[in-house]
Design a protein around this nucleic acid. Sequence first.
DNA 1: TTGTAGGCGTTATCAC
DNA 2: GTGATAACGCCTACAA
Lengths: 363, 363
Amino acid sequence: MVTMSDVAKAAGVSRATVSYALRGDPRIAAATAEKIRQAAQKLHYNANISARSLRSGRSGIIGVAIYELDRPYPSEMSAAMSREIARRGYQPIVQQTSGSKDDEIMILQKVTSQLCDGMIFSPGQVSDEELRALSHGKPMVLLDDISPDPVFDSVNTACEDGSAAAVRHLIDIGCKHVVVVGPSYDMLLDDKMASSVVGRRMTGCLRAFEEAGVDVDASNFLPLEHWDPIPAREAAYRLLDSDDYRDADGVFCMTDTIAISFMRGLADRGVRVPDDIALVGFDGVTESEYAVPSLTTVRTDLDDLARRTLDLLIDRINANVGGVGIDAAGDAGDNAGDGLAFPDAPQRLTAAWELVKRESTRR
Amino acid sequence: MVTMSDVAKAAGVSRATVSYALRGDPRIAAATAEKIRQAAQKLHYNANISARSLRSGRSGIIGVAIYELDRPYPSEMSAAMSREIARRGYQPIVQQTSGSKDDEIMILQKVTSQLCDGMIFSPGQVSDEELRALSHGKPMVLLDDISPDPVFDSVNTACEDGSAAAVRHLIDIGCKHVVVVGPSYDMLLDDKMASSVVGRRMTGCLRAFEEAGVDVDASNFLPLEHWDPIPAREAAYRLLDSDDYRDADGVFCMTDTIAISFMRGLADRGVRVPDDIALVGFDGVTESEYAVPSLTTVRTDLDDLARRTLDLLIDRINANVGGVGIDAAGDAGDNAGDGLAFPDAPQRLTAAWELVKRESTRR
DNA sequence: TTGTAGGCGTTATCAC
DNA sequence: GTGATAACGCCTACAA
């Protein structure tokens, strides 16, 4: 391994000078800096991240921790985040939380919060308060976190407006009995109605029903225990087999993956989409465009999502630099939260989206 | 941040004792060790990875660097790798190489080879020799790397046998004119025929054709500049529009993503699968099961792939420890078996696979 | 069985 | 402008 000392020796200067020069400190003479850069280049020098991180607390890495890397939406989102992180001059790393709480904690404790200058996290089981403790004062932006009393910045998908648009579209094309696949009707009574993704998407649906003058009951909702392909496919059988849903002619599935699996379930029974049942999904994954029939969906603009997320995160990272530098009196990060020179209130943004109309609702 | 000193103070011992105890060194008395563990637990102590890595060169992290995280196959593969890495007690991190050579180099230089005890890499543009330099002596296992003179261990998909099975299956169900989508017929003259994924898959196809007594010419191959959805969809139009392929009745696409896009292209023109044209893919992504019609495919067993990959990698990591430390009596059982302090020759394994027959070839 | 001490490569605080 | 020098938190020979 070639270290800073090697570069210093090659350039005939001290280690300190190398450090300054490579980091672009203006105090170093241009000629010296150039000489040092060339020496570094020739030796294929690369700063040791562990050493830098140990000494300065900064690594140049931004971490993305996400649930289920093997599903289309999370993986396309991670890819978009990775690209945007790289574009901002940071190194992206992605981690899979697999949905278990221990896993999420482990990842944050062991890797992300230690190694990363900032984190992008899609919280599953861990509460905001726990996250605060796990973040070690490092900046973090949450995805689709709607907790009533937010601790971190977050960027959300357009749950309400998007879902409302989906249901409205089904009604517009003439559906008389629209069924929403995902939530249970009982959800209405749940106190998480306003603070969870499913609750907010359901709220959007209800708004659309109401605006269209449609009375809603349990037969407008087909609950899904897990938002996975197999239960979603079987949900289609349930819909077809139950008297409650027999005249259903329009279905809104809360994710594209559910929609595509549901569509497969309909195909298993020979039900035609959109002729017999029209179908709308949510997310706008690539797969939705290539399905047969292609899927109408509420597409989240992932590039916009990534851009907004990194705007927030990098602002916080830069703010932290100023803060940490003066931070001689221990880790004030926590207790000074409501004080002066400290971060403003958590922001909450929504990513751009659009309803993409395709064959599954073409009538 | 709570350091080892804090734990030492809380437990009333020295830092060294804490280090030994937490790493399970048998020299520490059981009672002392337990006391230390409890103190660490209570203080929520977590070893600082940067410090550990700087001092010992080991971080407990294994990195996966892969091309295009937003495609189904790579993302499902990364997820399988992540799970297996975690199962072995390491922390997984995933990075997207995006296919550019600079990117691959950057990732290896700046992050992976520095931070990780071992790497799993799916090489795109970088040659084996360059990789050797970039690896900094850290163990690495390559995926689907078929270079004639391998430097690293690798685990491959069953390119030849899998492709042969795909083509054979199309012939078995009665296809008279099978077209392989992906490679160009000119590939045969290419010197990378034996050392690239596309070349080896093509070799498998040729074997199946030959065994079936089918004469092959350019009309059995439909080249694809990029293995992406849009060109694949358009390839279907090309197939239908060209006289060369007019009587094609069976198609083998070199990946599932190509197959599904191609199938979409056929649907655009009202061509029925499998009635008019039968279709086989390669990979076995989840999506292939939910497509309509469901896609017959050469499924790679990703769990098996991950298992074999980590068997190789962790062996090398442990061997490296033996080499680096002066650990005389160490677990020589593994590494000192053959030869001296030098690693054995690169191994090359193939992941389990199966031909999954589905609707797209049901006749 | 446990403590002491030195150093991993970098950055930051001083002098010069 | 540049160069010594001291940490950052941990690991590990060696001493006790």
